[in-house]
Design a protein around this nucleic acid. Structure first.
Length: 446
RNA sequence: GGCCCCGUGGUGUAACGGUUAGCACGGCAGGUUUUCAACCUGUAAGCAGGAGUUCAACUCUCCUCGGGGCUACCA
């Protein structure tokens, strides 16, 4: 089995495209087949090295593997020309200068549901001759059979007047030459399939098996796009999602896995993936669910691994201790720094938190007592810190938060942080006492 | 306009010609708790609508409605 993922080089890898790539990968992996990557760059304008680079980067980030082959469709221009000539010689394609305007005029005359048929000319673009009789039937592994009557189909343009080929032609020729057995792609290509089928037929070749995946929509039911927040793999990465979580989530969106379970390894995914089980209905990309899943993956990562990823994500080093105490509280890598950055960069400036917590009655005394108790500590570790701080609570006869919150604001600057004992223990004696002192110095005493 | 696809709670989905229509996210209400999370318990919420086939339909057929895609000398 040979499958292919053929993105258009328009820039970032769209989330829907990522899922298509993933499904192809799972299919190939589960069936011991090969995944071929090919950039659909017959439109040279849109194909920039940067765009291609972005796509490869995203696929690599997702940890998908593919077979090295001719990566660019444009490298095959010679073969395309040759195939074109074959079709012209056999009368299956003809030159026509007809424009979109002419096609509309034709339909005015013959009816909207009548496909355009041109007359052969000496100059112009190349159109494929579609027979009026019969129909092309798309045999789709997911959707069953869909019939497209030839009368409704326009003779498609397969090459520009300058000889360069167009997508629907090139894709068929390339799939044929690459020996692709299964074409798995977005449902937006379903209507294009009869044109490609016609190309296979004109070339006297057997088409591959097709499977059209349901499209991914945004929360508003419209096709997923920029205004829905993250729309590309790159954005997901930058938002702090883990590739394994993204992969798992994307796989869940329409693959028809057992919903009693939702976490799967790549091997399990590949093992269970069945094209026949893929849903026909479009799915809405729900970032909240991805967050949830990501949080689970994050919490199960060994601390050393989590640290490595946080360091790569933030560009900082020495995050090990902080990773350990913050990991229970984050769902994405991006949430780490707001939560634990104070350990490295000093307390966050949050006047509102300061006012509310340290402005409260008894806060200054509580903080002072905590300071004194901590200063007496001989062994500075989490258990000892907890012991003495709880002692302060007991001695003062107040609620725990009346002691813990002032300490938290003193060291973190804000009311949200990892656990107070762990934070203090990690910060160290010197830094903790210094931060408390500096806080005390500007705290009003009630 | 033409051609085509799709339709189970807000979201992702499971099941089956006969079930109290299940699970998860999210919501709500409690619990735990030093904050925020996490975690635990409980709870609300669905077969788009209408015909037909059948002893029986969410499941099969048709229609309507709704959503989507394609309709380029784009991919």
């Amino acid at each position: 089995m040979r499958v292919r993922f053929a993105p258009s080089p328009t820039g970032a890898l769209h989330i829907g495209g990522a899922r298509t790539a993933l499904y192809n990968w799972l299919l190939a992996r589960g069936q011991r087949g090969t995944l071929v990557l090919r950039i659909e760059d017959t439109d040279r304008e849109r194909s920039t090295p940067e765009n291609v680079e972005q796509i490869l980067e995203a696929l690599t980030w997702l940890e998908l593997e593919w077979d090295e082959g001719p990566l660019f469709q444009s490298e095959r221009a010679e073969r395309h020309t040759e195939a074109l000539e074959t079709l012209v010689e056999s009368g299956k394609a003809y030159r026509s200068s007809a424009t979109g305007e002419d096609v509309r005029a034709y339909k005015q005359e013959h009816g909207d549901d009548r496909g355009f048929r041109g007359k052969p000319e000496a100059e112009g673009a190349l159109r494929l001759r579609v027979p009026d009789e019969g129909s092309s039937i798309v045999h789709d592994v997911i959707r069953g059979e869909t019939e497209f009557k030839h009368v409704h189909l326009d003779d498609p343009v397969i090459a520009r007047a300058d000889g360069s080929v167009l997508y629907n032609f090139a894709v068929a020729v390339d799939d044929l030459d690459a020996g692709i057995t299964h074409v798995v792609r977005g449902a937006d290509h379903l209507s294009n399939t009869p044109k490609q089928l016609l190309v296979f037929e004109a070339l006297g070749a057997q088409p591959p098996e097709y499977a059209h995946l349901p499209l991914l929509h945004g929360p508003d039911g419209k096709k997923l796009s920029k205004r829905h927040g993250a729309a590309s793999v790159q954005e997901l990465r930058d938002a702090g999602y883990l590739p394994e979580a993204v992969r798992n989530y994307l796989a869940l969106l329409g693959a028809g896995f057992d919903p009693e379970r939702e976490r799967f390894t790549s091997d399990e995914l590949a093992e269970r993936f069945r094209l026949e089980r893929v849903s026909k209905a479009p799915a809405v990309f729900d970032e909240r669910k991805l967050r949830h899943l990501n949080g689970e993956y994050l919490r199960e990562l060994p601390v050393e691994e989590l640290t490595r990823r946080l360091e790569a994500f933030t560009g900082r080093i020495g995050l090990g201790g902080a990773a350990g105490i913050a990991r229970e509280k984050m769902q994405t890598l991006a949430e780490f720094w707001p939560l634990a950055g104070f350990i490295f960069d000093g307390p966050t400036d949050d006047p509102e938190a300061f006012e509310r917590v340290l402005g409260a009655e008894g806060a200054a005394q509580a903080l002072g007592d905590a300071r004194a108790a901590l200063a007496r500590l001989e062994l500075w570790d989490e258990a000892s810190v907890e012991r003495v701080l709880r002692d302060v609570v007991e001695t003062r006869g107040v609620k725990p938060k009346e002691v813990f919150q002032p300490v938290r604001v003193a060291i973190a600057g804000r009311t949200i942080s990892p656990g107070i004992f762990e934070s203090v223990a990690l910060l160290g004696r010197e830094e903790t006492l210094a931060r408390i002192d500096s806080t005390l110095a500007r705290t009003p005493v009630h």
